[in-house]
Simulated scan of single mutants.
Amino acid sequence: MTVFAMSPDGVRIALHELGDPDGAPVLLIHGFSSNAQRNWIDTGWSGALAEAGLRGIAMDLRGHGDSGRPTTGYEVPRFLDDVDAVLEQLMLDEPPGAIGYSMGARLLWRHAGTRTLAFRALVLGGLPAGDPFQRFDLDLALRAMAGEAEAGPTESFVVDLAGVFPEHDPATLVHLAAEVSDSLFDPEQAPPTAPTLLMTGDRDTRAPDSASLVPLLADGRFAPIPGRNHMNAPTSGAFRREATAFLAARLRGDAAAA
């Protein structure tokens, strides 16, 4: 089932239900150029959430999936406002848990760090200590897409990802990356205080330094995702099992799931 929340600037944010409809709520946020369907639904997270007694609510970020795709309006504060709008739409009795991957993990780090009561526990996957959009050149990326220039490493990374899934508009995602890059991710600014599990593939060259973020957290730990890189980590059964057990233990008070 898909419903929509309305952001303060009028962009519709799509929400997809998965897992146990009567379980403890968990917000799921996908990575750049992905969407709820690709990141969570197609990769078996619904079954893992249901088995752990968790209700998943997976949002499509603006510019992705079934959410609105404005031509501009991709500054980081707007993404934070979108999460606020989703939480308001859900009208939950108590703060939920949350799982984010890559860009979704960076968004949740920022959101939970500045809204300390929004979430009871977090799982952040594929989270680098720096920002992969650093020194992103929009003009160069657009010229590379048109075959008029050779992209640099950052531009090539963004352009390649923007064209992965046919349901997305690559130009929209490239502009999104440019606007997000105006507010680079700095994990030392307001780290989350909620219990946080960091998980990254042990073959991930995009986020090889996730474990270095643990000392910034009030209650944090790190676990590797065996045999996975940045692109295929969400398909890992080990990722699903450890993430859902971590959240179940903190949202349902189930000591056996810890």
Score class of each variant (00 low, 15 high):
M1I: 01
T2L: 08
A5T: 05
A5C: 10
R12Y: 00
I13R: 14
H16R: 14
H16P: 01
D20S: 06
A24Q: 12
V26W: 04
V26K: 09
H30M: 06
A36L: 04
N39A: 10
N39R: 08
W45G: 06
S46L: 00
A48Q: 11
E51C: 02
M59H: 04
M59Q: 12
H64G: 02
H64S: 01
T72C: 10
V76Q: 14
P77M: 08
P77D: 11
R78Y: 02
F79V: 02
V83N: 11
V86Y: 05
D93C: 07
Y101R: 07
S102Y: 01
M103E: 09
G104W: 06
R106D: 00
L107E: 02
G113W: 11
T114W: 05
R115H: 13
R120L: 01
G125M: 11
M145P: 06
A146K: 14
A146L: 09
G152R: 09
T154I: 05
S156Q: 14
S156M: 08
F157P: 02
V159A: 12
V159C: 11
D160L: 04
G163N: 13
E167F: 13
V174S: 06
V174C: 08
S181E: 06
S181N: 01
D182R: 15
P192M: 07
A194H: 01
P195W: 03
L197N: 05
R203E: 08
R203H: 09
P208C: 09
S210W: 02
A211Q: 13
P224E: 08
P224C: 07
M231L: 14
A233S: 11
T235Y: 02
F239I: 01
R241L: 10
T244L: 07
A248N: 15
R250P: 09
R250F: 08
R252L: 13
D254A: 13
A255M: 08
A255T: 11
